[in-house]
Design a protein around this nucleic acid. Structure first.
Length: 867
RNA sequence: GCCGACAUGGCGAAAUGGCAGACGCAUGGGACUUAAAAUCCCUUGGAGGGCAACUUCCGUGCGGGUUCGAGUCCCGCUGUCGGUACCA
């Protein structure tokens, strides 16, 4: 007797076999327009997964959740007659690989390759129908050549304000082209992380620490490459509208871009006459501005501070500068600040107001200076209370009479009011509701030339350079202190083969160690920074379309077909697409802003420059939910609750893993793993197996004797066709859990049938294919199907079979269920009413009472309302 | 603080405003077996009443509302989980 327990069905034998067959036949390879055999009559469907970063620890059960969902969709669409593009690849540049390499002394290329091999093996063991011929790898020179090429497009482009479109810089007529490029050099303070030896984008810094590793980040000015994403801020907001994305993600992006409408207002410094410009969203409260605050780093601080305040000012600026961002935000519960000794004139009241510096005003937002209206802003209120600054009420929640005339009110309000209301103590604005007061004051300020309307965004330009080894080198050289682009013919620019790529310990990037490489010519040296990890993932979805193209980043015809569905340019122009692009993009919420915003930005630039056909890359986005450990906690090594898909496959098979991932609950929901749940779906698969196979006394599997070539009886036909209908609809709606339930119902019905219709089983096996493809292929073969189950057309159902001759209808009296009646499907309303009223329980309940209302919902229920 | 999502049996979950709890897990019982595993059948929201076929009442976080009818729609709370934080 074998030591290993016998499997309830031999998945361990047939799963690898069918994976081999799909691979040998290239079942899931799809052709591009122009290739021999391409069928232009089929509609296209592009279904995309967020590609993984191949980490050293391999796949965890969270990965296959989204991947299974897209695989089901892809296989279903294929069976439904679509050309389906369903690719996979590797986001393989990045810090973890580099750090691991430093630790172990291996080259990051070696570890990256090994990790990719592991990931690929694991994905293939789950039986995903990817077109592996289209695999991409961001670290492949044939790939990053085009990442560098796109960078050059950005470098050579500017946003023409007249057209609001990105254009080649040759259309720029101004003097300094470098000041408008979409990729430009900045010397602004950046987030420098000494531990990682690199700068980080604002988005990669969380609470003053690096998102990766949690190391302290300090701000220091450095020469950096920036991408002018802010030029697209408004379009990045507006063009969200036509996208089928979760509202929460759209909102997230809108908040991140942070549009606010307001005004710039000039205040004049008493004495020096210098101008301080502030940004405010509440220009209507200008009459209540009783002091001003500059950020400690504001350029005017030095010149306006009085001699006797200089010492204190300097001390404050020093502490502010030495504080990490963490201390400046989280720990700064109490407002701090110092008076500069200077005063400015409130342009509408003519009053002298003190000018302070405080770190609650940020350098990076607006103008780095504010007018403080303590009565109507919580931060200003707190500050004013602490430093005993005057507080003047200028907005009232209710209209108030008799407070007009612009007179000064000396009574301080008892509490801060930040809402909208009606202007008071505000001269000509008095009585106006907030929105009108805003408009009115802006007109007046503009007339006087001391202010103007202004739309401000929170979004900053994208810090695009890193001091790393394992990233794309910039196709840029420096000569006589000036940068210039490499020629396209010089791409790809490979990174130097370094043995020592450790951080230098200074802001000097590791590439500086490759002295030969750095020297471009006698007079020119190469740019030493590399691109951030986001670069490769900004456009990978385009490369899948045409991953072997050596002439272009993506072929024009293929790009048009896969993003618009149109084969010719003419039909593309005539089509009424909302945005187009990828039909379905599935991934986690962690990319709600960064990746999705960056990719949209690049795509818009490429669109403006005529390189792609659609203004947006991803038409429909779905976030899969988090999978928790069995203990309901987030999976983590330290908690020891991590589930490895390899173990699940070994025990229950790939089909059970796939099916369980989908059966757990709605795709978007957060849900805990349960091994007994896996066993549940595993038992279901075994039941399906036994619809076709039965075991003899020796324990061998033989074709089931119950299975016969007989037509389906009425009940069987009904459940089978109802299942075809529901499973198809549920797949479209991504309700995989309920689709699986329905197949269980169908299986339970067929299990009890003896003899059992071969046709019924064949249909069930066909629609099970997208979910449990290995079992489906195996059983398809065993029920005598020709070809592959994966290649079968999706079966259609006969609606006539679903209609019952007699319908059971519940009858309610005053909303309470009393009885169920059975009526003919074509019974008339009066007939139904009569039957309902005659039913014993109903008759009893309505006896002697006046019927006030009688509702018959055809096919659903009857409700009798009595007095 | 602010923004968002969610709240249904012992558990994961179903339910175009129309029979709450489909389907699965876990219970408990039975069949098969020398025995077990596997498999198959039945049971299972709560409380009560009947020898029984059965039956009554209550039940979707809490309080209101709309409706013939609310898990579902509206208003107000509470709780949990995510995101975010001086953005003027």
């Amino acid at each position: 007797m074998s030591t290993e327990r016998r499997k309830p069905f031999p998945f361990d034998q047939f799963e690898p076999r069918w994976q081999r067959v799909w691979d040998e036949r290239q079942t899931f390879h799809v052709l591009n327009p122009g290739e021999p055999g391409f069928d232009a009559s089929k509609p296209k469907y592009y279904v995309l997964d967020m590609f993984p970063y191949p980490s050293g620890s391999g796949l965890h059960v969270g990965h296959p959740e989204g991947y299974t969902a897209t695989d089901i969709i892809g296989r279903f669409k294929r069976m439904s007659g679509f050309n389906v593009l369903h690719p996979m690849g590797w986001d393989a540049f990045g810090l973890p690989a580099e750090q691991y390499a430093i630790k172990t002394g291996q080259h990051p290329r070696a570890t990256t390759e090994a990790n990719i091999a592991t990931f690929k093996r694991q994905l293939q063991a789950i039986g995903f129908g990817y077109d592996w011929q289209r695999e991409v790898n961001t670290t492949d020179p044939g790939y990053f050549k085009w990442t560098q090429w796109i960078f050059l497009q950005l470098y050579n482009a500017w946003l023409n304000p007249a057209t609001n479109r990105a254009e080649h810089v040759s259309s720029f007529t101004g003097e300094d082209v470098d000041s408008v490029r979409l990729a430009y050099i900045s010397h602004a303070p950046v987030n420098w992380c000494p531990e990682l030896g690199t700068v980080l984008a604002n988005e990669e810094v969380v609470d003053g620490k690096s998102e990766v590793g949690g190391f302290v980040v300090e701000r220091r000015p450095m020469r950096q490459w920036m991408l002018r994403i802010t030029a697209f801020a408004q379009r990045l907001i507006d063009e969200l509208d036509g996208l089928d994305w979760p509202d929460s993600i759209k909102m997230h992006q809108r908040n991140w871009i942070g549009r606010s409408e307001g005004a710039l207002v000039d205040f004049t410094v008493v004495g020096s006459g210098e101008k301080i410009t502030v940004f405010t969203t509440r220009p209507d409260t200008l009459y209540g501005a009783t002091y001003m605050v500059l950020a400690p780093e504001h350029p005017l601080v030095d010149s306006i501070s009085t001699a006797e305040q200089k010492g204190e000012i300097e001390a404050y600026r020093k502490t502010a500068a030495s504080k990490s961002d963490l201390e400046r935000t989280e720990l700064a519960k109490e407002k701090t600040g110092v008076f500069t000794g200077a005063f400015a004139i409130n342009p509408v009241t003519g009053e002298k107001v003190p000018v302070w510096i405080a770190d609650y005003v940020l350098t990076g937002y607006g103008t780095g200076a504010i007018m403080a209206v303590p009565a109507h802003d919580e931060r200003d209120w707190e500050f004013a209370r602490k430093f005993a600054l005057p507080i003047r009420e200028v907005v009232s929640p209710e209209p108030r009479l008799g407070l007009g005339g612009g007179g000064v009110c000396d009574a301080e309000p008892l509490e801060v009011f930040c809402g909208e209301g009606f202007a008071i103590h505000s001269g000509p604005l008095d009585g106006l509701p907030t929105s009108e007061a805003k408009a009115e004051i802006i007109v007046r300020l503009e007339q006087q030339g001391i202010g103007k309307r202004r739309i401000q965004f929170k979004l900053r330009d994208w810090l695009f350079s890193r001091q790393r080894y394992w990233g794309e080198p910039f196709p840029i050289v420096w000569e006589n202190g000036k940068h210039r682009a490499l020629d396209e013919s010089e791409l790809p620019l490979l990174p130097p083969e370094l043995l020592d790529f450790k951080p230098t310990g200074t802001p000097e990037p590791p590439l500086s160690k490759a002295t030969d490489w750095v020297r471009y010519s006698d007079t020119a040296t190469r740019e030493l920074n590399t691109m951030p990890q986001w670069a490769g993932s900004c456009w990978y979805y385009l490369r899948y379309i045409d991953n072997k193209n050596t002439e272009r980043f993506v072929g024009a015809e293929a790009e048009r077909y896969w993003t618009t569905g149109c084969v010719s340019q003419l039909s593309a122009l005539n089509s009424q697409l909302p945005h187009g692009g990828v039909d379905l993009y599935v991934g986690g919420t962690e990319h709600a802003v960064l990746h999705l915003l960056y990719a949209r930005f690049w795509h818009k630039v490429l669109f403006d420059l005529g390189h792609v056909s659609t203004p947006e890359p991803f038409q429909r986005l779905v976030n899969q939910g988090l999978i928790l450990g069995e203990d309901g906690q987030k999976m983590s090594k330290s908690r020891g609750n991590v589930v490895n898909p390899d173990d699940v496959i070994k025990e229950y098979g790939a089909d059970a893993l796939r099916l369980y991932e989908m059966f757990m609950g709605p795709l978007e929901a957060t849900k805990p793993w349960s091994m007994s749940g896996v066993e549940g779906v595993f038992r279901f698969l075994a039941r399906v197996w036994r619809l076709v196979m039965e075991e003899n006394a020796e324990g061998e599997w033989l074709p089931s004797s119950a299975l016969q070539d007989i037509p389906m009886d009425k009940a069987t036909a009904k459940v089978v066709h109802a299942t075809i209908k529901k499973v198809g609809e549920d797949i479209e709606a991504l309700s995989f859990n309920t689709a699986i339930s329905q197949m269980m119902v169908c299986t339970n019905a067929l299990t009890s049938a003896n003899p059992r219709s071969r046709e019924a089983v064949r249909l069930l096996v066909t629609i099970l294919g997208p979910f449990a493809p290995h079992l489906a292929e195996e059983l398809w073969e065993r029920v005598g199907g020709t070809g592959l189950a994966a290649d079968q057309p999706w079966p259609s159902y006969d609606p006539a079979l679903l209609i019952e001759d007699e319908i059971e209808m519940p009858v309610q009296v005053n909303g309470k269920l009393r009885e169920k009646i059975v009526v003919k499907k074509d019974a008339t309303q009066p007939e139904i009413e009569a039957i309902a009223k005659a039913a014993p329980k109903v008759a009893e309940a309505i006896a002697g009472k006046e019927i006030k209302k009688l509702i018959v919902v055809p096919g659903r229920l009857v409700n009798i309302v009595v007095a």
